[in-house]
Amino acid sequence: MAVIRSTPPAALRDSTGVPRATAPPRRRSPARRGAVGWLFILPFLVVFAVFLVAPLLYAGYLSLYTKGLATGTTFAGIDNYTRAFTDPSFLKGLWLVLRFSLVVIPLQMIVALVAALVLDEVTGRLARFSRLMIFLPYAVPAVLGALMWGFLYSPSFGPLEQISSLFNVQAPFLLSQGNIFYGLLNVVTWQWSGYYMVIIYAALKSIDSSIYEAARIDGASSRQIALRIKVPMVSSAFVLILVFSLIGTLQFFAEPQILGPIANGSVTPDYTPNIYAFNLAFAYAQFNYASAISFALGFVVFLAVAIFMVATRKRGSIFT
């Protein structure tokens, strides 16, 4: 498996941002102790080898073969990949998740950032309560989040229809083919913004507040403090969030899969690459081609994250 060599882990910093001093010369030879270090990471390495490295290699292997009813298993070289990257179903799904990421990630970031900045300003019972309630959807399984919103969108028992009829307007039917993209956008934003808000909020709380005092004496307004001091100082939290949401949305599966049956026909069997791979494997028993699709998707995700990491390296990333 590939490693991002351009960003090797260097000495970690502690929470105050001061680089940790390099270890002083040891009194005892650490050679034997090093072996103990291996023992501590051994269980992880075993799980890592069996459930990450092996499936990756196996997927790579499977994807190089094809299985025909008459011909049996034959070596296909990169045929499956050329097929994948010219397969309109795969490309359409890939385009959908890319478009989805481009909209949902900034949306989540803005909601999370604004909520965190406001919560950092306001104190008291309402703020504490809000913080918890905004975070709450994180504890709800994606399957149930999608189901609940599906109910709310539904004309037969959702309130959307009732509320719009109060104002004499037609409710947008968010489960229709044209609108399900927005319906899903709302589900994902609802589900994850709170989690990201907590991460940004924690980063904001760790800023030394004497900086704000100094800025205020220099005549900075609250808004200027927020935009010029707070936002730049929590930028490393953004990187973490961006990486997570990029990885998460590119492998989109549960929400569209659940909304599919409720939204008659809006979610096609090739709606996202993961749904496509799942259907290829379990509806058509095409495990070799499904593996190639999975591998290709994994590669695209890895590439997207790697490009992003290199692009933001200067700003200090989680992988420095």
Partner: peptide, 12 residues
């Protein structure tokens, strides 16, 4: 590995 999409591993 943090960057590997784990669902890509489900089918293999």
């Amino acid at each position: 590995a943090v960057m590997v999409p784990l669902t890509a591993l489900v089918i293999p």
